[in-house]
């Protein structure tokens, strides 16, 4: 599935919710179901510091594709991370670098990507793109 196909799928899922509570229940559920993050990666090297919650991100190459795993100590952020990982993981560095992430805005969650200090999510997205750039440079 392409990055945009995954984004469109998420947008479609969110269309089912007519109130904030359903939406957040779903995000919390995604957070709970996020694939476990290896304890050995919970180091200073992998931490993305926001003012509010801690986010850990790990990236590795599997063949041509970048595989992301991530975690947070806050459950809603974990749910949002889960969506970012779902959209961007298992794609080539070039696809990730060029990705236009529109789904957060479409599902009404753009405030979580706002550039405030309180939010590690914007930094996480930036870090995902930085990893992709690094892998791309490595390849060339």
């Amino acid at each position: 599935m392409t990055i945009n196909e995954t984004q469109d799928e998420i947008i479609e899922e969110f269309e089912l919710f007519d109130d904030w509570e359903g939406k957040y229940e779903y995000i919390i559920d995604l957070g709970k179901k996020l694939a476990p993050f290896k304890e050995e990666f919970k180091t200073e090297d992998h931490i993305i510091k926001g003012c509010q919650s801690r986010v850990w991100l790990h990236a590795e190459l599997n063949g041509d594709n970048v595989v992301f795993t991530a975690d947070s100590d806050a459950i809603i952020v974990k749910g949002l991370i889960s969506m970012l990982v779902k959209v961007l993981s298992e794609h080539t560095p070039e696809e990730i670098i060029n990705a236009d992430l529109y789904f957060m805005e479409k599902v009404g969650l753009q405030q979580h990507l706002a550039q405030t200090r309180s939010n590690g999510l914007a930094s996480m997205l930036k870090q995902m793109k930085t990893y992709a750039l690094a892998f791309s440079a490595l390849k060339n």
């Binding site: 509010q52 919650s53 806050a74 459950i75 809603i76 952020v77």
Partner: peptide
């Protein structure tokens, strides 16, 4: 068992 950020987000809603 509940992170303060989660509390803040849900109260803001």
């Amino acid at each position: 068992g509940i992170h303060h950020q989660d509390i803040g987000i849900i109260l803001d809603q």
